[in-house]
Structures are given as structure tokens and as C-alpha cells.
Design a protein around this nucleic acid. Structure first.
Lengths: 193, 193
DNA sequence: ATCAAAATCCTTAGTTCTTGCCATGCCAGA
DNA sequence: TCTGGCATGGCAAGAACTAAGGATTTTGAT
């Protein structure tokens, strides 16, 4: 028995996410958010409580999206190696085609806030283990079918792979040189042979 | 014909570096710096001009220190593999023994400021190529002596190695679990065989 | 030796702008 | 009609930086 919201919450959240992603938590002011979200200051505070809550919601939004993408690939790929290759290309194209060079929002949050912010830490830890588990499952399947070299522990390989991705997500802040990333990807994937 | 400085500029710069390293550029206020550096506000501004200049000087200071450490290892190691192993242990122990979990100051700067700050970008690019060159030299020597597998391009291997280090420097913000890092290091180094 | 000048030191206060957040009041819709 | 979204203006604190004033230490000229 009250007025309905004029805006789409998810849509606005996505805009907030883009700003935080691009400029970081401390680098983004509430005024900037007000200017870019298309809603008023009061609506912003009514809907998302305060700056920190808005950031947390943005981070969770981003994390869910990227996990779903990975899940899809893992579920639909025909082979383990293809799955991993697809995951790599998914992430790198996302990194390299962004002319703002925002990198990865989770890595950004991890570097800027993880040591100081328990809530951020919790989300990133959850993300970490989810991604790791997805990779472990894929790798184990590949090892059972003989597609992937069996000599290393699957979890160790998963951590190794994910670590390489993290490195590239940092480098994407500085360069978009494809040759640079191809060098890294080629050798990283060679471990699976 | 004037009074000499009472404090050691490098020492104070190191304190500033520690603050920026721990809390980032936007997360550190001038008031905090005044409180922790042991010199007065006016001395701070007289000596280092402004906040941004102080940050740049801190970054250059850090970059020079870490490069010198790497140079020493590269120059004194008896073999290529030993050099790389030493570089890895140098960096990881530095990362894992820090109870503040500051990570790597260059990676932190790259993530927080590189897309927005041309001066920071320049310093990090220089660092990038210097480290890469050190690694290339070590790897080439190892390949010539047959100690390192020759099948891959030396620069590609260098980029791969450095990329793995970057990944770990991000993860160090969240965890200090040695088993986690050992998994990554073991597989990363296996590429050299 | 003495004194003036220059450069450093510190304290304190102030300026200006931005920060995150809130209180009031109006208005739309169930 | 009355709940809740929306717009406006404002507030207290914090941001970076500056200015004023006095004390101290070094140098060079007298």
C-alpha cells in the first residue's frame, strides 16, 4: 500500500559496481555515485543503507555473476582441457577488451580492502574456495580420463591455475598487450600435458 | 650557511612507505602521516612537497630496494635454478612473515592507481621491464648450460614466472597458509624441468 | 668573538573543499 | 489516507594544504 520503486535495483547496483570497480572503494565518493546512478541521494541511502553496504552488495553481485559464468563453462564443456581453455579465454578477453582497464573487481577488493575489512575478506574467501572447487572438479575429471597429466595433485594444479589468472588480472591494469598474455597462458597450460 | 636537517630523509621516507603500503594511497591521510613520521607537518611539506610527491618517492624507494635485492641474488647465485628458487623464497618469506599482510607495494599501487596515475604507471612499467630482464638473463644462462629446458622462449618463461609471483602477492593479502603457496610454487617451478 | 642571514625546526590556527550522512517536506500510488 | 519513494538543503567531520610566529642551528661577514 505504498509507492513502487521507480528504478531497477539490480541495474543501479550494476552501475555502482562499475564505479567501485573502476576507482576503488576509497577512490569513489558518494557524490560520484549520486551523479552516475541516476537516482537521488535519499533513494540511494534508503535502498542501500550506506556506502559500505553498497560496496558489499556490489561485490556479492559481481561474485555471483562470475561464478555462474564459470559454472556454465564447467558444466557444458565437452572435455576438461576445453573447459580450462574456455575459462582462460573468458577471463582474458574480459580483461583485455575493457578500455578502462578495471581488471578484476575481486582482485581489486582483495588488494585494497581485504586486510582491513572482515566482510570483504569473507566474500573473497568464499569466492576463492568456490573457484578452486570448480577447477578441482574439472581437473579431476580430466585426470581420470587421462586427458590431463596425473602426476600432480588436482587441488595443487587448481591453485596454480587460479594463481596465474590472478597475476594476469593485476597485469591487465597496466597493459593490454596480447603477446604478453599469450606467453603466460601458453606456458601455464603446458603444465596440463 | 643554514641549519642542517635534524632527521634522516630516507628513514622518514621508509615510514611513509610503510603507511602507504599498508593502507594504500587513498586510505592514508596526511594527518596519519604527520602522526607516524616523527616530524612536524611543516617539515613534511617542506621536504616532500605534497602527498602525491611523497607517494611517488616512496614507490621509487621501494622499487629500488627490491630491484637491488634481486640483482644481488641474480649476480651471486651459483646456478640458474638456484637463482630462481632463491628469488621465490625471498619474495614469499617477505610476503608470509608480514603480520600486517601488506603484500607487495608495487602490486598494490598497480591495482589502486595505475589506470589513473601516469607517474605511477611509468614507475611500474620500468619495474616490470627491469624484473623481466633480470629473469630473462638468468633463464638464458640456465638454458645455455642445459640446466633449464630449452623448449620455451626465455622471455615467455620470465613472464610466466613473474606472473606467478604477482598472483601470490595478491593472495598474500588474504592468507598466509604455507601449504597453499607451496602448491603453487612447486608446479610453477616444474616448468623449468 | 660577534652578529646578521639563511635555512631548518615546531606549534597552532585557519582556509577551502569534500566527505558521508541525515532531516524535512512533498508527492505518488495502493 | 497513509505508507514509502523522491527531492532538496544542510550539517559536522575530515580532507589537503597554507600561513603565521617563534625557536634553533649553521654559515659567512664584520
Amino acid at each position: 500500500m505504498a509507492r513502487t520503486k521507480d528504478f531497477d535495483e539490480a541495474e543501479v547496483l550494476n552501475k555502482a559496481l562499475c564505479l567501485f570497480w573502476h576507482k576503488g572503494y576509497n577512490g569513489t565518493s558518494m557524490q560520484e555515485l549520486v551523479d552516475h546512478l541516476g537516482i537521488s541521494r535519499s533513494s540511494l541511502y534508503d535502498t542501500y543503507a550506506d556506502k559500505h553496504s553498497l560496496y558489499i552488495k556490489s561485490l556479492e553481485f559481481y561474485q555471483n555473476n562470475s561464478r555462474h559464468k564459470m559454472d556454465d563453462i564447467a558444466a557444458n564443456a565437452t572435455s576438461a582441457k576445453e573447459a580450462i581453455t574456455q575459462l582462460f579465454t573468458l577471463m582474458t578477453t574480459e580483461l583485455l577488451t575493457d578500455d578502462q582497464q578495471k581488471g578484476c573487481f575481486i582482485v581489486n577488493s582483495e588488494v585494497e580492502l581485504a586486510p582491513h575489512d572482515p566482510e570483504v575478506r569473507l566474500i573473497i574467501r568464499r569466492n576463492e574456495s568456490q573457484i578452486e572447487d570448480i577447477l578441482v572438479a574439472v581437473i579431476q575429471k580430466g585426470q581420470e580420463s587421462g586427458e590431463i597429466a596425473n602426476k600432480q595433485d588436482a587441488r595443487a594444479i587448481a591453485r596454480f591455475i587460479f594463481n596465474a589468472v590472478k597475476g594476469m588480472r593485476v597485469s591487465a591494469k597496466l597493459t593490454t598487450d596480447k603477446a604478453f598474455f599469450n606467453d603466460i597462458i601458453k606456458i601455464t597450460l603446458s603444465v596440463l600435458d
